[in-house]
Design a protein around this nucleic acid. Structure first.
Lengths: 191, 191
DNA sequence: ATTTTTTGTGTCTCACTGTGTCATCACGGA
DNA sequence: TCCGTGATGACACAGTGAGACACAAAAAAT
């Protein structure tokens, strides 16, 4: 997969972004996207499995990166803090390498079909975090719930970061989400 | 919408469940489902918007019910407890009125396309809970995060309930998920 | 340098999805 | 009995996603 023309990947992604903005998601077909990017419809489907996937260009390596990031967190760190730290790291990197991220995220938030796919991607990341936490020795049930919660924080942090338009760094957005989270859950720990 | 034949809804749902189990989701077409239920393909799409929706038969009224359930919780209850109590109530009712729930849930968990739709439904419920909590006076950010967390607990509780095969009631499954949750999140409240 | 293999693309084809439209049929009320 | 409404069937159509095959260019092997 790695040898595919990276430029074509981005040409398709940019073409799709423009077309979706210009004409609306439903009015755009895979053929339109392919034509604007200078390939055939059939080739489009070799780059992206379906019409939705093109809006998530550049995120293919995130799951393995995240897995490694969780495993790289300082041993002894409690599960939730581990997950949040890894997500802060990976999220910061991801954001830096994206193109037109804000425009694509706006489309994803606005179009139910894309939002649906977005949730699947978050769920996949949760799976990865869960697996990595389990590997670190966490309890199975705890790992699953912690992973899901951490991704709730991640999602909210991303929304916050986009709203700030560069005036806030991603790690502090994660921290803010974590604070809201801790305030909302009545802790059982009473030191 | 109310005058539609309820029996046909369930005939289609049962036909789909059987066919998916027999031949696998991909090998089954909307035409097959319709034929087994004794209607035409076109009529299938009048009962269910697409091929996925049929596996979620009987859940159409859940969002408004949930909204009311949140509003009905004793005033003064903190947000997360409110959401969990409402979900326990609505979930119990839902489970009681379903047919072939376990078989359908097994298919949903196994087939990515169905799981994707399932996540959307959970997200819709989270929206509803968020709106209802906001209406009760909760902070906007808090309401959103609490709602999402509560639905993480709901999802885990449902999985646990299905695994117990009737030996556990739904409310206690919610309680168990809530406990795991509280243990995982280091509380900031130190009374 | 020539052959072989791999990789991306174009072309053609096909089953299936989801929707619009129109005709029909059952049923309840005036 | 006639009429209106709402469910259903019949037909048509754009679009999706994928298989099969050929072809060109690059990479690897000889």
């Amino acid at each position: 997969m790695g040898r595919w023309d990276v430029a074509t990947h981005w040409r398709l992604a940019n073409a799709a972004t423009e077309l979706f903005e210009e004409r609306g998601y439903d009015a755009v077909t895979a053929t339109h996207i392919a034509e604007r990017a200078g390939v055939t419809r059939r080739s489009y489907f070799r780059y992206y499995a379906d019409k939705r996937e093109v809006m998530f260009a550049g995120t293919g390596q995130t799951p393995p990166e995240l897995y490694q990031a969780v495993r790289a967190v300082c041993p002894g760190t409690p599960p939730l803090a581990t997950a949040l730290e890894a997500l802060a790291r990976v999220g910061s990197l991801l954001i830096a390498h994206q193109r037109n991220l804000a425009r694509r995220r706006a489309l994803i938030e606005a179009i139910p079909e894309l939002k649906e796919r977005d949730r699947t991607k978050l769920a996949e990341l949760a799976e990865v975090v869960c697996a990595a936490l389990t590997h670190r020795g966490a309890d199975e049930d705890t790992a699953r719930i912690v992973a899901q919660i951490a991704l709730v924080a991640y999602e909210n942090a991303l929304a916050r970061w986009l709203k700030a338009e560069g005036r806030e760094d991603f790690a502090s957005c994660i921290a803010a989400a974590a604070t809201t989270l801790q305030a909302a859950v009545p802790g059982t720990a009473h030191p």
